[in-house]
Computed example of a mutant assay.
Amino acid sequence: MLPLPKAPGEKSVYLADHQYPLPQFKIDRAEKVKLTGKFQQIWQAINKGKDWREHVLKPAILTLDPGETTGVCWKDFNSDELWLMQWETKDIGLSFKQLLDFLERYEPFHVRYEDYKVYAWKAQDHSNASLHTPQWIGAIRAALCLADIPYSFKMAQQPKGWFTDDKLKMFDMYEAGMRHARDAERHMLFYMCFPDKKDD
């Protein structure tokens, strides 16, 4: 769980062996999940001949499920643990500055975020809507470009299809009550297994 704030308006999350302050980000919850042996077996079956430590443990990776509450999954350098978080990102301008600060501080090897599309059959549902999520995705992409961080994006279907709630429970990697963070976790696991899959 989250430690006590260091100062008014500032909360900190422990990532790996370090305390990472995230000023102004409102974080409703943070939980640590270990990459279990059950997941490693699946990864090795998919990625035969590849080095688990080199391709999974070594790089720092950030995955995001954007929305007014953004699901976050962070894997630190040389770590077999994931941090699941949910950031309040209703204010796009403020959230952009906070994300850029995070990227410049911790320099992930790669960022994967969930993309969003308005399909024709749902267009009527979006009429006169402000569409917060695509605006926030544009801000995320701008922050990634400014920080010069490699990124990719993926629609939700494949990660959700591969890493269902039942699969996460089977891996002992399911955190109840963190719907957005779990979606970011699915993107993390899918990226680890299929890093070369092209963007949707």
Rank of each mutant, 00 (worst) to 15 (best):
L103M: 02
Q86P: 06
V33C: 01
L4P: 13
P66G: 00
Q41Y: 10
W52S: 02
W136N: 01
K48R: 11
P5I: 07
C193R: 05
M192D: 06
Q41I: 12
M155E: 15
R105W: 07
P159H: 01
D51I: 03
V111E: 00
W136P: 01
F171I: 09
T63D: 03
Y191I: 04
V56T: 06
K32N: 09
P23A: 07
K26I: 10
A143S: 12
F194M: 10
A184Q: 02
H110I: 14
I61H: 05
E68N: 06
T69G: 08
A139R: 15
Q157T: 10
H110C: 12
L35I: 14
N47S: 09
Y116R: 08
F25L: 15
G71I: 00
C73D: 02
L84D: 04
D183C: 00
Y151L: 14
K26R: 11
S79H: 00
E68W: 04
G93K: 13
I92M: 07
R141M: 14
S12I: 14
Y191Q: 07
P21D: 00
G9F: 01
K122L: 13
L84Q: 04
D17E: 12
T133M: 11
M170G: 13
G67Q: 07
F77L: 15
T89H: 03
H110W: 09
T133N: 08
A123P: 08
F153V: 06
I92P: 01
Y106T: 11
F39M: 02
A156I: 08
A143P: 05
K117Q: 15
Q19I: 14
A60G: 05
I140R: 09
M178L: 10
I140N: 00
S152L: 06
R112E: 11
F102Y: 08
A156N: 06
I92W: 07
W52N: 03
A45E: 15
P23E: 01
G93F: 12
W83I: 15
L100Q: 10
K6E: 10
T69M: 11
R29K: 09
K26T: 13
W74F: 03
S12C: 15
Y119T: 15
M85E: 00
V111F: 03
Y174C: 12
L64S: 00
L103A: 00
R105D: 08
A129W: 07
D80G: 08
N128F: 12
C73A: 05
M192P: 02
I137P: 01
K154P: 06
V111K: 01
L189Q: 06
P23N: 05
A120C: 06
Y14D: 13
F109S: 15
K160T: 15
A147L: 02
F77C: 12
E175I: 12
G9H: 02
K167N: 11
L144C: 02
K32E: 11
P5K: 06
E175Q: 11
Q41F: 08
M178G: 07
K38F: 07
F163I: 09
A120P: 04
A181K: 03
H55M: 13
T36L: 04
T133K: 13
W121N: 14
C73T: 03
